[in-house]
Simulated assay, not measured.
Amino acid sequence: MVERVRRVREDQAAGPDTAELMRRVARGDEAAFEQIYDLLIGPVYGAVRRIVRDPAQSEEVAQEVMVELWRTAARYSPERGSVLTFAMTLAHRRAVDRVRSAQAAADREDHVGRREASRPFDEVAEQVTARFEQEQVRRCLQTLTELQRESVVLAYYGGRTYKEVGELLETPLGTIKTRLRDGLIRLRDCLGVVG
């Protein structure tokens, strides 16, 4: 790390003044930003990688830092430190935010998992609910006309296609579709299904 920082500082000394480049970046100079990017992406990535650890996430955070550097270039003040220091401060903050965010997400998942695991499955309640729903469907099927009920039972409980239902009942396909549509609307209304 020390060697990399020394190399960046040597490059900065040999190349253009980074403070001047940042002033140009603040005015929207893309060429100046390319130079800043080339000078800083290595140290920024290294700093982020030490905190985040994951290479792919580190690359993502490093790119976010460089975008933030572009957006906040006007806030840079040479009196408060070098461009490298400014960039490394942004990198450190972004990396710590990413680690905290990942940890918070893991904690939430763990908490939900423990809460779900501690809630015992009530098989009796599940069976009662299923029986109640079956009984409600049976009751609602009785509200359909005989033709509608016959079509619905063949299609949805018999697993037949509309065409097969039409052939079995020797009824045109259009009539079967109408019976099924009307029957399903009545079932929906009876069951209290919204939508």
Results as ranks from 00 to 15, higher is better:
1 M>P: 03
4 R>L: 13
7 R>V: 09
8 V>G: 06
8 V>L: 07
8 V>R: 07
9 R>Y: 10
12 Q>P: 05
14 A>F: 10
15 G>L: 00
15 G>R: 05
18 T>P: 04
19 A>T: 01
22 M>W: 02
22 M>K: 09
23 R>W: 04
24 R>A: 11
24 R>I: 07
25 V>F: 01
28 G>S: 06
29 D>S: 03
31 A>N: 05
34 E>K: 15
35 Q>N: 06
35 Q>I: 00
39 L>Y: 02
46 G>R: 06
48 V>M: 10
51 I>P: 00
52 V>T: 05
54 D>V: 08
54 D>A: 14
60 E>A: 12
63 Q>E: 03
65 V>L: 00
66 M>N: 01
68 E>C: 09
69 L>C: 05
69 L>H: 00
70 W>R: 09
73 A>Y: 04
73 A>C: 01
74 A>G: 05
74 A>L: 03
74 A>T: 03
75 R>V: 07
75 R>Y: 04
80 R>L: 11
81 G>Q: 02
83 V>G: 00
91 A>T: 03
92 H>N: 11
92 H>T: 02
93 R>L: 12
94 R>Q: 09
95 A>E: 04
97 D>E: 03
98 R>P: 02
99 V>D: 00
103 Q>R: 09
105 A>R: 14
107 D>A: 04
107 D>T: 06
108 R>K: 10
113 G>Y: 00
114 R>A: 14
118 S>Q: 12
118 S>M: 09
119 R>D: 12
120 P>A: 04
121 F>D: 10
123 E>D: 12
125 A>L: 00
127 Q>D: 15
129 T>A: 14
132 F>W: 06
134 Q>R: 11
134 Q>C: 09
134 Q>V: 08
136 Q>D: 08
136 Q>R: 08
137 V>P: 15
140 C>W: 00
140 C>T: 06
140 C>M: 05
143 T>Q: 15
143 T>A: 10
145 T>V: 06
148 Q>I: 09
153 V>L: 04
155 A>R: 14
156 Y>N: 10
156 Y>A: 10
158 G>R: 14
159 G>S: 07
165 V>L: 10
166 G>P: 10
166 G>D: 08
167 E>I: 12
170 E>A: 08
170 E>D: 10
172 P>T: 00
175 T>G: 12
176 I>E: 12
182 D>H: 12
186 R>N: 01
186 R>E: 11
188 R>E: 13
188 R>V: 14
188 R>Y: 15
193 V>G: 13
